[in-house]
Amino acid sequence: MSSTKDKVKGKANEVAGRVKQASSKPSTRAEGRMQERKGEAQQVKGKVKDSLKDRIDKA
């Protein structure tokens, strides 16, 4: 997956996670927290890919 796709999917997961956290159901709120964390990790993955690509291009 490209770095841009990772970042976009990550942002989408963060937003969906935040929406779920607004639920009154504890299990849904917990799921939302996990989904938000997953989104954050996906965005980091995309940033790392960009950084690696930049370093390879400079070499």
Rank of each mutant, 00 (worst) to 15 (best):
K11F: 11
K47N: 05
S23L: 06
R18F: 08
G46M: 04
S23T: 11
T4E: 08
K5P: 01
A12W: 00
E14F: 12
I56N: 05
Q42H: 14
G39S: 02
P26K: 03
S2R: 03
D57P: 12
G39F: 05
K9S: 05
P26R: 06
D6E: 08
G10E: 00
G10V: 01
A30E: 09
K58M: 12
E14R: 14
S51R: 01
S51K: 03
K11G: 01
K25S: 12
R18I: 02
E36P: 07
S2F: 05
S51C: 02
K11L: 09
Q43E: 10
E31L: 15
K5V: 13
S24E: 11
Q35M: 13
A12G: 03
V8F: 02
E31D: 15
R37A: 10
K25M: 11
E36H: 12
L52V: 14
S3Q: 07
K38L: 13
P26C: 09
N13K: 11
S23D: 12
K5M: 10
V15H: 12
K9H: 10
K53Q: 15
A16S: 13
A30F: 07
E36T: 04
K5D: 09
G32D: 08
K58Y: 11
G10K: 00
A41H: 07
V15T: 08
G17E: 03
K7D: 04
S23Y: 07
K58F: 12
D57N: 15
